[in-house]
């Protein structure tokens, strides 16, 4: 909880740094807290949602509607299962508490389309394509059963709205949802796909 307060204070401070209109040629920085909801085979390892995530991007406005740049993020998935009996390939029976710990860090080339650049509430659609740093850990008790660190592919379509704090202002709040497409194979997991629900701030970086 203390760490969340620190992040919030940082974001408030960042917001205080700028309040200028963004138009063609400006650069905008988005930073948002992200909740990850596993879908697909990721649920074979982790079915619990994760509030331990962040989403960020730096986008340059090509014109009033289109912005391009870089996107990144971080999401931590964790789940511990109650003790149960597993049959091993050699015929042994193993009773263990199994836990999964998975972190993803996408690094994406991103494009964002603002549908209504001058509206009070500005819907947008964005798409990021690029790489994904993956750290995957499967534990039985305190022992590592499987550990993988890989770079994979990631795609992140994103829909949301940007709400400026004042009319014409380029500092505001962004709320949206993304789908994180992340192929990856380990055990019963064939992807780390998850839906992201995000909320945070958008601020002008350079004009």
């Amino acid at each position: 909880m203390k760490q969340h307060k620190i992040v919030l204070l940082l974001l408030v401070f960042l917001f205080a740094l700028g309040a200028q209109a963004q138009r063609k040629g400006s650069t905008q920085f988005d930073i948002q807290l992200n909740a990850g909801l596993p879908v697909g085979s990721l649920k074979n390892a982790v079915s619990d949602h994760s509030l331990r995530g962040i989403k960020a991007s730096v986008l340059y406005a090509v014109d009033d509607q289109l912005a391009i740049g870089l996107g990144t993020g971080f999401q931590d998935f964790y789940q511990k299962y109650p003790r149960q009996l597993y049959k091993l390939s050699d015929g042994s029976d193993m009773s263990a508490v199994r836990s999964f710990s998975i972190q993803v860090i996408p690094i994406l080339a991103e494009a964002k389309w603002n549908f209504s650049p001058d509206a009070a509430v500005r819907p947008y659609a964005a798409l990021g394509l690029g790489g994904n740093l993956i750290n995957y850990n499967d534990y039985v008790g305190e022992f590592s059963l499987d550990q993988k660190t890989k770079i994979g592919f990631a795609a992140r379509p994103d829909l949301g709205v940007y709400i400026p704090f004042r009319k014409g202002g380029e500092s505001g709040m962004t709320v949206g949802a993304s789908f994180n497409f992340m192929p990856f194979t380990a055990g019963d997991v064939t992807n780390l796909n998850h839906v992201g629900i995000h909320a945070g701030f958008s601020l002008p970086l350079r004009k």
Binding site: V7, I54, F74, K80, D90, S99, F100
Partner: peptide, 29 residues
């Protein structure tokens, strides 16, 4: 700082185990 702070929220799977949960009971016949 924001990224580091959020990434430090990562749950450590080993620290989240009690001694009993850390143990494996393996039998073979």
């Amino acid at each position: 700082a924001a990224l580091v702070t959020v990434s430090s929220c990562t749950k450590d799977p080993i620290k989240n185990l009690s001694d009993e949960e850390s143990r494996l009971y393996i039998t073979n016949r």
